[in-house]
Amino acid sequence: MREEIMEILTELRPDVEFENEKKLIDDGILDSFDIVSLVGELNDAFDVSINVQDLLPENFNCVDAMVELIENLQEEE
């Protein structure tokens, strides 16, 4: 799952070193347009439904946080 998320992220923003970034939202590296595209891709790739209430900085600040979010959503569904 982690690799797939990395692939999606790299395709979305090739200019960002996602492996090292821990504050993608807090530091404004990903903007709202990126988030909308990213959520669409993640929903499709992992068959989950990321809702607006899930759009918290702590869920998108780094790749590991995104993995955790998706795992939680998959468990819930």
Binding site: V39, I50, N51
Partner: peptide, 19 residues
């Protein structure tokens, strides 16, 4: 952003069109 942009762009209609 939080109360209009995200709810609209992540709505089921928007996601259906996107798909």
């Amino acid at each position: 952003r939080d109360y209009l942009f995200y709810p609209m762009s992540l709505s089921s209609t928007a996601q259906k069109v996107s798909k």
